[in-house]
Simulated scan of single mutants.
Amino acid sequence: MTVEPQADEAGIQTEIAVLSDLWDGLPEAEEIVRRAVDAVVARDDMTIPPDAELSVALADDAMVQRLNREYRAKDKPTNVLSFPAAHGPLLGDVVVAYETLVSEAGEEGLAPADHLTHLTIHGLLHLLGYDHETEAEAVAMEAMETSILAGLGIADPHATGRMMPDGPHARP
């Protein structure tokens, strides 16, 4: 099922495609994604291009594994992938894997909804130019995520240590 694109709070046209029935286990997923996008673009320190567009795919591990293998040469699923657009109003695509999200949430003692919020924010920050290739970049990106999540009443996912074995930083 694909939801029609909607302009979020700051004007980002966001299209959400639910590509797996597994997401029925988190029926509020589309609303969670929109709330996360709104929280990012509402920040005063965030530069969002005019007429920005975003595509979010709520997929399963098999699809994410195929994408991870094809674009990152890593033949395993990961929690989130970000695919920046080359140009134009499209920021890019964020793809989230349901099974990995639920598994990680359980391991970390997080609500799946909170973890989806974090992964959406993380993926969107990548599309806006944030990264964590160096320690300084990682610290800055984690601080941004923590601040945005706190504004949504969600605890710091980095408080118990880095939650980045192969994701949520996966990016081709």
Rank of each mutant, 00 (worst) to 15 (best):
H158I: 04
A159D: 13
M46A: 02
R171T: 03
V3K: 07
E31F: 10
A7H: 11
G129D: 12
A85D: 13
M46V: 15
I148N: 03
L128P: 01
I148C: 04
M141S: 05
E9D: 09
R72C: 13
K76Q: 11
D8E: 15
E30V: 14
M141Y: 04
P168C: 08
S55T: 09
V102W: 02
Q13A: 14
E99T: 10
T14V: 15
A36Y: 01
P50G: 03
H132I: 05
V139R: 13
A97T: 10
L90I: 01
D24C: 07
I48G: 05
A42S: 12
E99P: 09
K74N: 12
G109A: 09
A62I: 09
P84E: 09
M164G: 00
E28V: 14
I48R: 01
R66M: 15
T14K: 00
V37A: 06
R66W: 12
E142A: 15
V56S: 07
H115A: 03
D93M: 06
A150G: 14
M63E: 05
L124Y: 00
S82D: 01
L91S: 07
L91M: 11
S103C: 10
P27Q: 09
L26V: 10
T160H: 15
L22S: 14
H158M: 12
E99M: 03
D131M: 06
A86H: 06
